[in-house]
């Protein structure tokens, strides 16, 4: 099972705000059959956002959910043309959506997702993601995600 695929990587797109971003991701996941219920996914993503912002001052927001609506562990990577505001942060240019089923998740997948989160604290890695020019090269940078 591939956690990330080319269709989950979108570079230099135009989205205006957090709501548009989350809606865009939800549609992407529905259209690629990774999610069975858009409404439930949105509910779970927003519940998590209400607990605490998923932007951590690194220029990246990480909307995520462990949700009954999710069929397979999936990562979505969006890079925006223009930075947007995400709660208290104003400079969000990259979004990693991380989605995990509510039950029976392979521990190997959880480990892959945790290693991605760890990598995102590395400034050089973030720089590389900001500069990467093609979907193929992005996939290469993120390829650790499909290691299993």
């Amino acid at each position: 099972m591939e956690i990330i695929r080319e269709e989950f990587i979108k570079l230099d797109i135009n989205l205006e705000n957090k709501k548009e971003v989350i809606d865009y991701i939800a549609n992407l996941l529905i259209n690629s059959n990774r999610v069975r219920d858009k409404g439930l996914l949105l509910k779970d993503v927003y519940l998590r956002e209400e607990e605490a912002s998923t932007s951590m001052g690194l220029g990246i927001a990480i909307p995520h959910a462990k949700s009954l609506s999710v069929k397979e562990p999936t990562v979505v990577f969006l890079r925006l043309n223009e930075s947007i505001k995400w709660n208290e942060d104003k400079d969000i240019k990259m979004i990693f959506g991380i989605f995990v089923p509510a039950e029976n998740v392979d521990n190997q997948h959880l480990k892959i997702l945790s290693s991605l989160s760890r990598k995102l604290t590395d400034e050089q890695y973030r720089e590389a993601l900001l500069k990467v020019k093609s979907i193929k090269d992005s996939e290469r940078l993120l390829q650790g995600l499909n290691a299993s």
Partner: peptide, 18 residues
């Protein structure tokens, strides 16, 4: 530790370790 335990727990750990 964080509620979902998917992203921030690990970012925080990495940050402290570094």
């Amino acid at each position: 530790a964080c509620p979902a335990g998917i992203a921030h727990t690990y970012m925080a750990a990495e940050s402290i370790e570094n």
